[in-house]
Amino acid sequence: GWRYVLGLMIILFAWLIVGSGASVLVAFALGGQADPSGLGLVEYYLFVMASFLCFFVGILIAVALVHRRHPQTLITARKRIDWHRVGHGFVAWFVPYCLIGGLGQYLLYPDTFSFTSSLITFALFVPLALVLTAIQTTTEELFFRGYIVQGASLIWSNRVFLAIVPAVIFTLPHLLNPEARAGGWLTIFSNYFFVPGLVWT
């Protein structure tokens, strides 16, 4: 139990304190000031993603040094990761998400999309987005659906409990997102609590 408390403190410090400092450094390096509001789209994306690199490192430190375990144990209890299952889960989620979330939104709310002809911005952004978004999503999964679930299992191994705990904890930091503030409680429930929190767990 104490290892999870200590590990959680290390992870939160790396994410919220060190990560915030890293984001400020990125804002200074790219925009000359700590305020990210003057940054362009790609620069602002880097500003946001900087904290996730620190978050990821914090998880690795907590698992490897405090728990003395391999980080893979956050993903599976097997000797190896079953990439077939990972691919199956990706397709099972990504295809309907693109059809409903992407195509559906475009057909129902076309004014929410904007297109640009800047090939330089596109060419710069795509490789960054593929690498950094993968780090961001992996980090969130390792923490919320790995570390938090395993820590909560020390309290109670009930599967419903183990689905609800990370769902609530996952929802809390996302309440600050602009779409959560604009969309109200239904957006918060469906986008953060129900789908990622309960279904993914």
Rank of each mutant, 00 (worst) to 15 (best):
W2R: 15
W2N: 13
R3L: 11
V5S: 10
L8Q: 14
M9E: 12
I10T: 09
I11F: 14
I11R: 15
A14W: 14
S20P: 11
G21Y: 06
G21T: 05
S23L: 06
S23E: 08
V26L: 04
A27Q: 10
L30S: 14
L30I: 02
G31Y: 05
G31W: 03
G31A: 07
Q33K: 15
Q33W: 06
Q33C: 06
Q33G: 06
A34P: 14
A34E: 13
P36T: 04
G40P: 07
L41V: 11
V42F: 12
Y45D: 03
L46D: 00
F47P: 05
V48P: 09
V48G: 09
V48W: 14
V48S: 02
S51A: 00
F52D: 03
L53W: 07
L53A: 07
C54K: 12
C54D: 05
F55R: 09
F56Q: 10
F56Y: 12
L60A: 06
L65Y: 13
L65D: 10
R69M: 00
H70V: 08
H70P: 12
P71S: 04
Q72K: 15
L74Q: 07
I75S: 08
I75L: 00
I81M: 03
I81S: 00
V86G: 09
G87E: 00
L99C: 05
I100T: 04
I100N: 12
I100H: 12
L103C: 11
L103P: 09
G104P: 10
G104T: 03
Q105Y: 15
Y106G: 05
L107C: 09
L107E: 02
Y109L: 07
P110I: 07
D111M: 12
S114V: 11
F115R: 04
F115Y: 06
F115H: 00
S117G: 11
L119N: 10
I120M: 13
T121V: 04
L124C: 11
L124H: 12
L124K: 13
P127L: 07
L128S: 04
L128K: 01
L128F: 11
L130N: 14
I135R: 09
I135T: 04
I135P: 00
Q136L: 05
T137L: 08
T138L: 15
E140N: 09
E140S: 08
E141V: 01
E141A: 01
L142R: 01
F143D: 10
F144G: 01
F144Q: 08
Y147T: 02
I148A: 00
I148K: 01
Q150M: 02
A152G: 13
S153K: 10
L154F: 13
I155Y: 13
I155V: 05
W156A: 14
W156Y: 08
F161T: 06
A163L: 04
V165T: 08
V165R: 07
I169M: 04
F170H: 05
T171K: 08
L172D: 06
L172P: 02
H174Q: 05
L176M: 13
N177P: 14
A180W: 06
R181F: 06
A182F: 01
A182K: 13
W185T: 14
I188S: 05
F189Y: 15
S190N: 11
N191R: 15
V195E: 05
P196G: 08
P196V: 08
V199Q: 04
T201H: 03
